[in-house]
Design a protein around this nucleic acid. Sequence first.
DNA 1: GCACTTATGGACGATTCAGTCAAGAACTGG
DNA 2: CCAGTTCTTGACTGAATCGTCCATAAGTGC
Lengths: 196, 196
Amino acid sequence: MPRPRKFDESAVLAAARDQFWSAGYAGTTMDAVAAATDLGKGSLYGAFGGKQELFHRVFDDYCAQAEDGVRRELTGPDEEAFARLTAHVHGIAASVAADTAHRGCLLAKGTAELAEHDPVVAARALRTFDELERLLVADIEACQRHGDLSPGADPHRLAALVLTVLRGMEALGKAGKDARFLEAVAESALAALPRP
Amino acid sequence: MPRPRKFDESAVLAAARDQFWSAGYAGTTMDAVAAATDLGKGSLYGAFGGKQELFHRVFDDYCAQAEDGVRRELTGPDEEAFARLTAHVHGIAASVAADTAHRGCLLAKGTAELAEHDPVVAARALRTFDELERLLVADIEACQRHGDLSPGADPHRLAALVLTVLRGMEALGKAGKDARFLEAVAESALAALPRP
DNA sequence: GCACTTATGGACGATTCAGTCAAGAACTGG
DNA sequence: CCAGTTCTTGACTGAATCGTCCATAAGTGC
C-alpha cells in the first residue's frame, strides 16, 4: 500500500488558483505556488504534472464551480423565474462592484491571457459560456411560460444579450467603473427585455 | 549635435505592441521585443526606459488610437446619428467575429492582466472607457434630437448599456463565440433601444 | 515488524530574464 | 575635418525560472 498524501488536494488547488488569479499564468511562478501551498516542488510536480497541467486543472474547476453557482441561481419553478433572473443580473452587478480590488473573474482573465494560444483553455471557456447561455435560455423560457416576458421573443436572442451584458459588466468593473454605473446597466438590461 | 536615431519610433512601438498583444505583459521578454524591432537592448532601454515604461507607452498609444477611431465613427450630423450608432455596433460585432485568431483587444487584455496591480494601466483603461461612453452619449443625444430614439430615455443609461454590450461582445468573441451569436447580440441590443 | 509503494522536500542544473555597461559609430555645427 | 554629443551593439551580470532527481519518510497489507 502506498504512502497517502499529507496535503489536502482541494486546499492546494485553491491556493494555486489564487496565485494564478492574482498574477496571471505567465506571472505566476511554481516556486510561489509551492510556497503558498507549503508543498515541496517535488510533491507539486508529482501530484499535478507541471505548470500548464496545474493551470488547466484549476481553470477547469473554476469553470465548473461558476456553472454550478449560476445553475443554482437560475433553476427553480416557473413562478419565480423572473425573480431569479433579476436577482442574478443585479447580483452580478453588485458582486463586480464589491470587488474593489478589481481582481475580476478568473474565467475572464484566463481567457484574455491564454485563449489565443492554448486550445484547452479556449475550449473550456467556450463551453462555460455556452452553459451559462443555456441556463439563461431555460430561465427565460420559464419567464415566458409564466407570462413575465413576451412569448413572441426569441429566448435565445434574449439570453445572448443578457450574457453579453453580464460579461461586459465584468470587463468594465475590472477597469474601475463604479457601482452606480453597473447598477444602472443591470437595470437597463432588465428593462430592455420585452414584457408581454 | 547628437547622433540622430536610426530607427522609426512608431514602427518600434508597433512591433512592441504586437509582442505585448500576443504574449501579454508578463509573457513578453525584452529580448523578444529587441529581436522584433531589430534594435539592440541598449537602444531599447535608452529610448524607452524599461519594460514597464515601454508597455505604458504602448498601452497609452493604443487607447488613444481606439478613442480616435470611435470618435471618427460616432461624430457627425444629427441626421446620421442613428445610422452611425447601428454601423458602430454592427461593425464591432463584425470585427470581433473576423478575429478568428482570437487575438482580441489589447485594451481588454491589458486591463485584465494588469489593472489589479498597475494603477497607471487601470487609470488609462478607465479613462478610455469613460471617453467611449461619452462619445456614445453624444451620439445617442443626437439620435434623440433627430427623433430616432425616444426623447424621454436617459441617454447616459442607454450609452452605458451599449458600451457594456460592446465590451461583452469582445469578451465572448475572445472565447470563441461565433459571428452568428455576435450579430444576433448586436441586433438585439439595437432593437432594445427605445424608439419614439 | 517487514517489505513495498508512494509522498516529501530541498538541492541542483540548464536556461532565461531584466537591465547595465563600455567601446566604438554616426552625425552636425563650426 | 574636427569636436562634441548621442546612438548602437552585444556581451555581461545576478537573479529567477521550470523542471528533475534522489535520499529519506511514511503508511499499510501480510
